[in-house]
Design a protein around this nucleic acid. Structure first.
Lengths: 231, 231
DNA sequence: ACTTCGATTTCGCTA
DNA sequence: TAGCGAAGTCGAAGT
């Protein structure tokens, strides 16, 4: 990985065109040829970048560029598309190279898959005496997160999200429409379960007779731990 | 901005828990206290990070950590939430500090807003003798991108996307349902316009009587340039 | 290989 | 300021 701190301007031409005026920035050149342009603020997203695979070519500025103070021109060309990033370097303040090797990668825990697993084990959170039929219950248009039965044996399709937005309601609606055409399943009720449900999504869901349930992740995980400790 | 190349392991605890095993990585500390952990590959997203505002505290390892080779422990605490990033540093290969100043920011061109503006000026692309009624036509559930009239005076709602996917069809369907309840507007036809329309989205749209139109951005921009040159 | 869907998404606009 | 849609989204999992 090569790290360069430089006063530069940057132009991107590809799926859109974008321009960065002259300023001091970090240029990160990775082993796969990708280039990231970072400022000293914002979040993890660079101001501008080129995705791998790409090829970095360093050249001399043309006459008119040299006149305005450009000392070096970087051309980062995408290997697959005709996207291109041009960096006009006016002054280099730092330049260093480092061998990092391949990264072993990130280990995650606590995303939607985990929520689904926990709720499948704790179906009673949805109602007293309810039971799980299947996780990832397949329909013609895709899998429903959970299919459960209420205390009186009625089918309920559950859509689980970390953050409940309007598209999740649409998704569940499509499943319910389809499942209610199946005489073996019908009637099927719907539940939209999430750690957080946006007001618009809640209104749409309830307007369609879909119940909304807020999931407390910490509580569910805690209960899970307790259950595991008992065994 | 502080740049550190170090052999380290990283743990994140917050909205989820995540772990990075021991390896060589770049640690970027920005002026706002945010920290980015980058490897020498992947895309512009770091392996792990802490969003601003955050506070970095450097401490000594406890006894057990020191035994396994940790020489320094970084604790990055989010200022707003209880998210926390812990970096166990085993060896520092590089450490430098750089003054970058505030960045003037990015200038963009060619996104959905631009597409909408261009199509509003070139309504004839949708049909001979068509005319624009309004951009961002407000309804109770949100603004329709374009409301236009066809050659015979019939209303048409247009949803514009850069990439046409299924959720855009759902969105337009909701608008059409609502608008067709208004006797002053009804009947309202629908058009789904995008630079690219996914097959599933096309099938769903056409099944609902929504016409699909592919927009050629370069051609539209070119035509726009030509028109501007004439004035 | 292609498609679909989630994300510690982040970003930007609007009400 | 909160909410909502878009992104040069990226990335992983399943088909």
């Amino acid at each position: 990985m090569r790290l360069v701190i430089a006063r530069c301007s940057v132009d991107y031409a590809g799926r859109l065109t974008a321009h960065l005026p002259l300023a001091n920035r970090l240029l990160m050149v990775k082993a796969d040829g990708s280039v990231l342009v970072h400022s000293d603020g914002g979040s993890y997203k660079p101001l501008n970048w080129m995705s791998p695979p790409a090829k970095l070519t360093v050249g001399a500025p043309d006459e008119s560029a040299a006149e305005v103070g450009v000392v070096e021109v970087w051309t980062v060309q995408s290997a697959k598309t005709d996207d291109r990033l041009i960096v006009n370097i006016h002054e280099v303040m730092h330049d260093s190279n480092h061998e990092l090797g391949v990264d072993p990668g990130l280990v995650k825990d606590g995303v939607e898959a985990h929520l689904q697993k926990l709720l499948a084990e704790q179906v009673n959170r949805l109602g007293e005496g309810w039971s799980l039929v299947r996780r990832e219950y397949m329909t013609a248009i895709g899998p429903v997160d959970l299919l459960v039965k209420d205390a009186s044996g009625g089918s309920v399709a559950v859509e689980i999200k970390r953050r409940g937005e309007i598209d999740g309601v649409e998704q569940l609606t499509r499943y319910l429409e389809l499942m209610n055409r199946d005489p073996l399943l019908s009637p099927v009720a719907g539940i939209y379960a999430a750690q957080e449900i946006k007001p618009q999504a809640r209104v749409l869901a309830e307007d369609r007779g879909i119940r909304c349930v807020i999931l407390d992740y910490d509580e569910m995980r805690g209960l899970d731990d307790v259950e595991h400790r008992l065994f």
